[in-house]
């Protein structure tokens, strides 16, 4: 057909203007400046980490070249050149043990309940809101909880000494930290469980499995990598918290532990790496380098824990 040709409009002023503006290479200076400013703020926040780590590394290196592994195996001391972190490392690992033994089973069980069992009612909603709010409570408030409940109520008998938890002891601090990370464990585990597709569960029910069998044999194995990541996050949070354990009464200085039984040690004086760091940071400038070295030890332990989790997750993660 002959009518196919488009109507040949004469080039209007508008089309000319648009053509010119599309062809021109005018640069958007304001936009460029904006982008550079944004990039700078991102670089600044990353640079803070690099700078902080290099600062810590410098101090740690000086201690390492001066003293070698001595620093790791010595206990606390009033002299900077004799002070070591062994008691801190042991305390931190004991506290992590409490978190693993208490917060993980309870947290994962709560997550299973909330995701697999809970009916959609007011109680469930209340539990969910409550857990979300608990994650936002400042850690020092958890410290006060531990001080009131574990140190004083369960820690002192009628004569004001030596109750169940031994007062200001590893047990009280461990229980407090377990309480502190419980909401984190629940939320991350619940997210991991929620990510398991419905079809997996339906397949299980289809062959006649009960709810618990579906949960135990199908849902939990599939959610395990995600749960693991969450639990390790909780561990590194617990290792870095200083305020609660200081409130419980972690020792910031020197203490001796003779030949005590295991229970006596759990009920006795204690310290942990964050408390050691806090104590040394308040000392004179001679303690600068050992403080940096203690921070380095704490960060290495945290990074090791996180790295293991990432490795395990990548190894077992499933794509649906």
């Amino acid at each position: 057909m002959a009518a196919a040709a488009p109507p040949a409009n004469p080039a209007s002023i508008t089309t000319l203007a648009v053509e010119r503006s599309l062809a021109s290479r005018k640069r958007d200076w304001l936009g460029q400046v904006f982008q550079v400013v944004l990039l700078l703020s991102l670089i600044l926040s990353l640079a803070i980490i690099v700078f902080l780590l290099s600062n810590v590394l410098g101090g740690a290196w000086r201690v390492w070249t001066d003293r070698g592994t001595d620093f790791l195996t010595e206990g606390g001391s009033r002299q900077a050149e004799a002070a070591g972190v062994w008691q801190g490392i042991r305390g931190t690992l004991t506290l992590v043990g409490f978190v693993v033994l208490l917060a993980f089973p309870i947290g994962i069980a709560s997550a299973i309940y909330l995701e697999e069992y809970a009916p959609d009612n007011t109680l469930t909603k209340f539990i969910n809101v409550n857990i979300r709010n608990l994650t936002g409570v400042p850690s020092v408030v958890y410290g006060l909880l531990g001080l009131a409940v574990f140190v004083r109520t369960f820690g002192l008998d009628r004569n004001d000494e030596g109750g169940l938890t031994g007062g200001k002891s590893v047990i009280s601090a461990g229980l407090t930290l377990a309480v502190l990370v419980l909401p984190i464990v629940i939320i991350t585990s619940a997210e991991a469980i929620r990510a398991v597709p419905r079809s997996i569960r339906e397949a299980g029910y289809g062959v006649g499995a009960s709810r618990w069998e579906v949960t135990r044999m199908l849902v939990l194995p599939s959610a395990a990598p995600g749960i693991l990541t969450g639990t390790v996050l909780a561990i590194s949070r617990a290792m870095g918290e200083a305020a609660p354990i200081l409130l419980i009464g972690a020792n910031t200085g020197f203490f001796s532990s003779g030949n005590q039984s295991f229970v006596e040690q759990l009920q006795g004086t204690f310290t942990a790496l964050p408390a050691v760091i806090f104590g040394w940071a308040r000392e004179t400038s001679e303690f600068r380098d050992v403080t940096a070295a203690a921070i380095f030890v704490l960060l290495v332990i945290t990074v090791l824990a996180n790295g293991t989790a990432v490795w395990l997750r990548n190894r077992f993660e499933k794509q649906w």
């Binding site: 069980a109 709560s110 539990i127 608990l134 909880l145 409940v149 419980l182």
Partner: peptide, 19 residues
């Protein structure tokens, strides 16, 4: 499992009560 989930409420009650 339900009693595990209720522990989180116990924690909130504990915080408010002790404070």
């Amino acid at each position: 499992l339900l009693s595990a989930a209720l522990i989180s409420i116990l924690i909130s009650v504990g915080i408010v009560y002790s404070l």
